[in-house]
Nucleic acid binder design. Sequence first.
DNA 1: CGTGAAGTTGAGTATGCTCAACGGTGGTGG
DNA 2: CCACCACCGTTGAGCATACTCAACTTCACG
Lengths: 253, 253
Amino acid sequence: MSTFDIKTIGAIGAARPRPAGSDADASPCGACTVRHLTICAPLEDHELSEMNRIVSSLELDPGDPLFDEGEPANAVYNVTAGAIKVYKLLGDGRRQVTGFLFAGDFLGLANDDIYAYSAEAVTHATLCRFQRRKLEVLLERYPRMEKRLLGMASHELAVAQEQMLLLGRKTAKEKLASFLLNLSKRLVQRGQKGNPVSVPMNRTDIGDYLGLTTETVSRTFTQLRQSGIISLNNGGKVEIHDRDVLEEFAQGF
Amino acid sequence: MSTFDIKTIGAIGAARPRPAGSDADASPCGACTVRHLTICAPLEDHELSEMNRIVSSLELDPGDPLFDEGEPANAVYNVTAGAIKVYKLLGDGRRQVTGFLFAGDFLGLANDDIYAYSAEAVTHATLCRFQRRKLEVLLERYPRMEKRLLGMASHELAVAQEQMLLLGRKTAKEKLASFLLNLSKRLVQRGQKGNPVSVPMNRTDIGDYLGLTTETVSRTFTQLRQSGIISLNNGGKVEIHDRDVLEEFAQGF
DNA sequence: CGTGAAGTTGAGTATGCTCAACGGTGGTGG
DNA sequence: CCACCACCGTTGAGCATACTCAACTTCACG
């Protein structure tokens, strides 16, 4: 894994983060459609102008890296659209995707000023970037935001523990059932329809997230499809026919 | 899993949390030997008296439950001595231990007022108990503590991600190597010798933590022993002979 | 259409699980 | 004091789930 500073990514050319269009730049925070989900939720409208001053917008294409494990953690991010994956690697290249992030999700919290994982775009995605030091000043002034951040971190922690249960103790079928239900729930949380479920990531990413190979993911999809529990539509849409059975699988009965 | 209120545990008789001896009660926080590791770290000496007022001490025997998943989260805890395990269960009883906690470690942060996991003593253990509502008042007054809590949560998050990598992508040998090195590092962090490593939990707990069966844990210990990398001493002590090889296993080379 | 990447399916295999037996140890009660 | 018992850890044999390697299909995109 190369370790390079986020500020030079554009120059390297592997990624092409670019400033978002002028529309968004005019009053990005005021126009933010996912504010209630982000770290900005506790701020009053008139306080957003301060946010505007320290935030910058960012756009990524599929496969573009956002940052790499080990890199100095100079910024934190809020996803405003699209999907991001975060992952860790072993020495021989084995990969564990520790999470998929969608609009409203937060990433980049680093304990010791070094990112503990890498982040990369799954789909075309837009993000808000907060310079770490400037954000810290703001947090000092608005303890509400710090509280919000703690709430988000402790939610992340609960999600991580659920994922450990999945990785350590569930079968392939149970893993995939849990995964689909999770995606569905997160869509609903964002006010979208929870069925059919949009599955924007490929089989390799799903496998690396669930601790499986692509082949096993594919076979398990087939198995669920042939049981009539789901169907696979075009454009990565999965239609859930029997949510109850899926729930039973997910909970290990 | 039964869900009962922590306050009634004593009456039920499954557990026997009891107030610690009068020595500790006199000025528990002032005498705390692990304060620098806890949420109390940022408090000045003269502020500890406030802490004293909202904290109570607690003692558990091996196997005693502290709280159960799903229970209302009325308190958070700091371990002051001994070892605690936290775990989640599937419907059919499969178990995933999501962490082992030692002196200085913190548990009980709950996002939605409900514990997301169960906690139980591994060895004889002592803990500080903070009533949630009272702690919140204190956090309001000391943003430093809130910041500290955020730091601890984000550290936990990094640890959780490392564990996901282990569960999803490491072999049995790599899992056990990582586990032993982790225990060793945590001993060193607490100012103790990192070798030999005290391993107070049994094979079942280790298996449930690493996503393995007891038999596989046992076989893998034997394998590492026969390779001369470790030896198993009395009293659950593991002596590490070749840390470098263990590190290589743990990092997946 | 042609090409390359992604997904699916098949055959054989290996890692770790299941089931079972056995040995050591510590606690208990006769 | 010692026999007994329960629990824990270890080891063995056989097995199953998911992996590896490979071929083939589908799809997106030029």
